[in-house]
Simulated scan of single mutants.
Amino acid sequence: MKLRKVTAAAAVVLSFAVTATACGSSKDDNSGSGGGKKITIGIKFDQPGLGLKKPDGSYSGFDVDIASYVAKQLGYTAKDIEWKETPSADRENALSRGDVDFIVASYSITPEREQKVSFAGPYLLAHQDLLVRSDEKVTKGTDLNGKKLCSVTGSTSAQNVKEQIAPKAQLREYGTYSECLDGLIGGAVDALTTDDSILAGYAAQDQYQGKVKLAGLKLSNENYGIGIKKGDTKLKGQIDDALKKMVSDGAWEKAVKDNFGPANYKNEPAPKIGDIVK
C-alpha cells in the first residue's frame, strides 16, 4: 500500500516536471514559427536611413526594413524581434558568441570576414562616395586635392581617398559622422566620405535637406550582406530565399525609396544573390 502511494506521488511529480519543461522550451525555442518566440537581430543604432534607434524607442532604416522582412519570412512577427546594437568592431564576436541570430548593419562582404562568418545576400551594392555642400561642384576624386576631407576616426574610407585618389587632401578625423556634417555645413571641412548609403541616410534627414548632396562618385564597391554564424547553411538558404522574395514583390524597392528618397540617392538595382561585385 505504501509502495503504491509513493509510486503515485512520484508519477505526479514526474508529470509536473515534464509539463514544466515543455512550457519552458516553447518560450526559448527560436524555431521560426512565431507564437511568442524571439529572434535577436543585430543592427546599428546610430545610422540614419540604415539603422537608427529613435527617441521613442522604435527603429527605422533600410537595414531595419530588410531585417524585419526577413524575420517575417522566417515566421516571426514584429513583436518577436529583439534588436541588439552591434558596432562594426563587435559584429564577428556577436555572431560567434551567439548574441544575435543574424546581423544587418551595413556589413560589407569581404574575403577576410568570410573566414570568420557566413553571409547571405548581398542585399545592396553601395559605393564609397563624397558628401559635399549643395553649391559645390565635385566631378572626380582629384578635385579633393587641397581640400579638407572628413571621416570618422579609424575609418579606412578617408585613408583610401588620401592614399589612392587625392594625396594632397587635408584629412580631418572626427568622432562621429554628425560632427563631420556639422563641420561640412559650417565650412570647417569641404567633404565627408564613407559609403554612399550612409551618406544618403544623413542627407535625407530634415535638417540637412537642401544643404548637402552626394557627389555621385563610385570610389569602391561595397556588397552589403547579412551576417550569420559561420557554416549555418540552413539559415543562409532561408534568408537568401526571403531576400529574393523581397525583391520580386517590390518591398525592396519601396524600402529604398522610403529611406533614401529625399537624398536623391541613385541606388544600384537589387543585386542577385551570391553576385559579389569586385
Results as ranks from 00 to 15, higher is better:
residue 9 A to I: 13
residue 12 V to C: 12
residue 14 L to K: 11
residue 31 S to A: 05
residue 34 G to R: 06
residue 38 K to F: 00
residue 39 I to V: 13
residue 50 L to A: 07
residue 61 G to K: 04
residue 62 F to Y: 11
residue 71 A to K: 03
residue 72 K to H: 12
residue 73 Q to C: 05
residue 74 L to C: 05
residue 76 Y to R: 07
residue 79 K to G: 10
residue 79 K to I: 00
residue 86 T to W: 00
residue 91 R to M: 03
residue 93 N to G: 04
residue 99 D to E: 14
residue 99 D to M: 09
residue 104 V to C: 10
residue 105 A to H: 03
residue 108 S to P: 06
residue 111 P to M: 12
residue 113 R to C: 06
residue 114 E to A: 12
residue 125 L to E: 05
residue 128 Q to P: 00
residue 134 S to T: 13
residue 145 N to A: 07
residue 148 K to Q: 13
residue 151 S to A: 14
residue 165 I to T: 10
residue 174 Y to A: 15
residue 177 Y to M: 14
residue 177 Y to F: 14
residue 180 C to K: 08
residue 182 D to V: 07
residue 192 L to N: 07
residue 198 I to Q: 07
residue 199 L to Q: 05
residue 199 L to S: 06
residue 201 G to T: 05
residue 203 A to Y: 02
residue 204 A to L: 08
residue 207 Q to V: 11
residue 211 K to L: 10
residue 214 L to C: 07
residue 215 A to G: 07
residue 220 S to Q: 07
residue 221 N to I: 01
residue 224 Y to N: 05
residue 226 I to M: 06
residue 227 G to S: 05
residue 244 K to I: 00
residue 244 K to R: 15
residue 245 K to P: 01
residue 249 D to N: 13
residue 255 A to N: 09
residue 257 K to F: 00
residue 260 F to S: 05
residue 263 A to R: 03
residue 268 E to V: 02
